[in-house]
Design a protein around this nucleic acid. Structure first.
Lengths: 201, 201
DNA sequence: ATTCGTTTTAAACAAGTGTTTAAAACATTT
DNA sequence: AAATGTTTTAAACACTTGTTTAAAACGAAT
């Protein structure tokens, strides 16, 4: 039992790293086995197929990183504070997982039905709570009339897109990884100000 | 000569469609040949290798769609008008090529050096002309102090990112393709207002 | 009609893919 | 110590991949 979890985890860790770096198609089962230092057939023994291993990893990956973000959206924080916290935590998470966005976009466009059929996908987008909060704020005259769906999408775009084109940004600006991180952290305030400015009645 | 260009174009057209839809790795040479209704070896005869065919297609694809956008950025239009036109033309182009963004992101993250080594990549990002225009507007007190690089990235994110996650947006909102298009067209004004609001001194 | 260069074809190649098999090694329980 | 169930191993399987080969078909010029 102890050893069982051990090799299973070794497979998971190695495969996760490879899938994130090179994508599903460019990662061979033999490479996973080699990196995990296990026999090739153990992958099938523990996960039945490469495809099922991949699904497991998607769920773990998105689950671990996105649940806390959804909780923020669904909390009862004041709108300003909620947006500020959401931006900050989302960016912190992506700094720790800089390959996640490109990975999700790749999976989404390669096999939309599969990704969208997973429960974890709910954590990736807007929630009813947040939409209703925006509507209520407008009804109380606190913010100007907006489309909540569009507003959330704007926020999400500003937060996540830079990570999808990190290589271009670094190349065009001659950024090191450190420079990129600083550039991204600067965005916390910029994005917040931009959204707040737009919400003003 | 006539027939030569004919089969070459048949290969290009079929391969472009398949690469956009399924990506490089999930598209086999046999599938391209089958779609183009040609013999398999003609692909190597005209393009030497699958890889070189792919490079050719990347250049054609990005070249055709991005050159006019760069021209807008480098034009001598007034800032407001330039931003308005850039947003509108970029969105129009992506409505005609909805798979382009996911495609570029995939290539960029799979093989950064290769994409960035191509000349067409210059058309994909900010330009010196636009950066200087933003700086001058600030020096004349027309806009508030901003980081031009961040500002351009904000604009690009708001314009392009929704196309990268089109499937999620359609799924969560129960959008048809027609709904999505209307939703996107609405964004022209939203994005413009947001950026202008943020630029006000 | 014959020659020449270009284009197209069918067949095969070598290499890599994910997966399965059946036996061995191991750990645990009786 | 023997039996049982779990885990690991090496080898092979069936299949697909991109590419090459050598001959055939074609078109144009002599």
């Amino acid at each position: 039992m102890g050893k069982k979890q051990n090799t299973q985890e070794k497979i998971l860790d190695s495969a996760t790293e490879l899938f994130l770096e090179k994508g599903y198609d460019r990662t061979s089962v033999r490479e996973i086995a080699s990196k995990a230092k296990i026999n090739i057939s153990l992958m099938n023994y523990y996960f039945r197929s490469k495809e099922m291993l991949f699904e497991t990893i998607i769920n773990l990956l998105i689950g671990k990183t996105s649940v806390s973000l959804k909780e923020i959206l669904d909390s009862d924080l004041e709108l300003n504070k909620k947006i500020e916290l959401y931006i900050s935590e989302y960016i912190n998470m992506l700094i720790s997982n800089p390959l996640l966005i490109a990975f999700v976009i790749a999976v989404l466009n390669r096999n939309p039905e599969k990704l969208l059929s997973l429960k974890v996908t709910d954590n990736l987008y807007n929630t009813d709570v947040f939409t209703k909060q925006l509507e209520e704020e407008y009804n109380h005259g606190k913010i100007r009339k907006i489309n909540p769906e569009q507003f959330y999408l704007n926020m999400l775009s500003l937060i996540t897109f830079p990570f999808a084109i990190k290589h271009i940004i670094n190349d065009k600006n001659k950024f090191s990884n450190k420079d990129f991180k600083a550039f991204i952290i600067d965005r916390k305030e910029i994005i917040y100000n931009m959204l707040m400015c737009y919400l003003k009645p």
